[in-house]
């Protein structure tokens, strides 16, 4: 019996936390700039199933070309995040106040 009540209590807790979280709404005015996450990383060639075509060329098994491809993917991902920030700037915050 106690186990059932404990289980029901835990379910109730999860529901309550969910409701609590839903209440947290940040208005666009309050969150004008999304700081890009440090965790944004481009997929590696292995992730997207590409061959490491010149793997025997260098000691560490990674060719200059592979490094460049990876760099481009990283830059592209970063640029994407920055562009999103740029588009999300809430210009309505500069509407005249008329107090």
């Amino acid at each position: 019996m106690h186990k059932i009540i404990s289980l029901l209590s835990i379910i109730a807790l999860v529901v309550l936390m969910g409701v609590g979280c839903l209440e947290i709404k940040t208005s666009p005015e309050e969150a004008p700039i999304a700081v890009p996450s440090d965790e944004v990383k481009a997929p590696t060639p292995e992730d997207i199933g590409e061959e490491d075509i010149f793997e025997d060329e260098e000691e560490d098994g990674v060719s200059e070309l592979d490094v460049l491809v990876e760099e481009v993917e990283t830059i592209e991902a970063e640029a994407e995040v920055l562009f999103k920030d740029f588009k999300n700037i809430d210009t309505s915050q500069d509407d005249n106040l008329n107090l």
Partner: peptide, 10 residues
């Protein structure tokens, strides 16, 4: 914890 969710978070 339930009270925290209901009161503190909002």
């Amino acid at each position: 914890i339930g009270l925290v969710s209901c009161v503190a978070l909002p």
